[in-house]
Design a protein around this nucleic acid. Structure first.
Lengths: 194, 194
DNA sequence: AGCATATGCGGACCGGCAGTCCGTATCGTG
DNA sequence: CACGATACGGACTGCCGGTCCGCATATGCT
């Protein structure tokens, strides 16, 4: 058996992901039907399904591609994303990075949420963020129900919400707000005001 | 012109809502197709659409029915839901009541979120909860970005999340957790531990 | 009661969707 | 070059949300 992905398969994989991205950018989440993706990528519909399994799988793959770097930086990279500094510091760095990804991919995020529905919490990516966040919170503020708190913080990373609250000309408003809220949760009493 | 809804119309309205409820209960959100609803209610499909406009409208109507009482209690009822006591007290009562509704209608909540997608934040019900919450937070903890905080708290009221975290035999775990988190947000330093 | 008409009804119909299937083409290997 | 493994394409299926319009009926008026 062949160990490596066949060349044409790899080429198509990329083409499909790129096409998905283009469609997402040009017309919102509903615009991305798998027929359209296949057509734009110049492949058959069957190919899309063989590679990605389902609409949800496709979006998930794209999302994972966008966050792979962050995942690796957290696990094996240098501080403050990687291990080696106090949890508070890592938390800030983590939220900043995740926020940036979310802000830059809000439409993709929405589409993914819609496609996954309730399976969202079984998604490996979600599990990873949740676990990481939960551990950092536990270290930064022992005694909190960190499992729940982590879910709560992640619940705010909702594509639709991000688009709804992000004012024109301040693309990082969302991340700042999340940081501030988490700071309050962690018990920073110092100046919460804008 | 007739001022009141025609009798058969009212009857059908109820039948459709009841059918929706039954389908939701017996088979999850995806189980509720409008064909099925119409069939179970014993009416034509057109009727469903004339009354409710769309799938989203139908679910929204059902949700509103479930929360009308709370809305009224908040606006004109006696404390602690209604006005007349400190914000902290009203906040606790509000979260308790909203939590109860959410816990009791998690499936409906999920279905509604899915159907509404990004229009969720324009929904009158959402606007009402958000406004109320925002005002209470502002009163209870001046200086916080209460607009954002209110969105963040409401983001946790996600049907899928509720189902995911609710352990068997402890139907109110979710509400308790939310209360505790909000308490921390508001600066209660006293015993956060379980 | 009987009529006129606004109002509501049903279900055939439409375009489009996610997902399946299998005969065919292509790749990589020896 | 030949051959088996692998991947491809796109017709096909079943269903969905939503529309439309000829028909039925409740209601208000006389």
């Amino acid at each position: 058996m062949t160990r490596t992905e066949r060349a044409d398969a790899a080429r198509n994989r990329r083409a499909v992901l790129d096409a998905t991205e283009r469609l997402l950018a040009e017309g919102g989440g509903d615009h991305v039907s798998l027929d359209r993706v296949a057509a734009l990528a110049g492949v058959g519909k069957g190919t899309v399904f063989r590679r990605f399994g389902s609409r949800a799988g496709l979006l998930q793959a794209l999302l994972e591609e966008r966050s792979r770097e962050l995942k690796e930086a957290i696990m094996t990279g240098p501080p403050p994303l990687g291990p080696g500094v106090p949890a508070r510091e890592r938390l800030t760095a983590f939220l900043d990075a995740l926020g940036a990804i979310a802000e830059g991919n809000a439409v993709l995020l929405s589409a993914h949420e819609q496609a996954c529905a309730e399976d969202k919490y079984a998604d490996p990516s979600y599990r990873f963020w949740h676990r990481h966040l939960s551990e950092l919170l536990a270290e930064a503020r022992p005694g909190l129900d960190t499992e729940f708190a982590a879910h709560a913080v992640l619940a705010v990373f909702d594509g639709d919400l991000i688009r709804h609250v992000t004012p024109p000309g301040d693309p990082r408003y969302f991340t700042r707000s999340v940081q501030r809220m988490v700071a309050v949760l962690l018990g920073d009493q110092e100046d919460v005001r804008t």
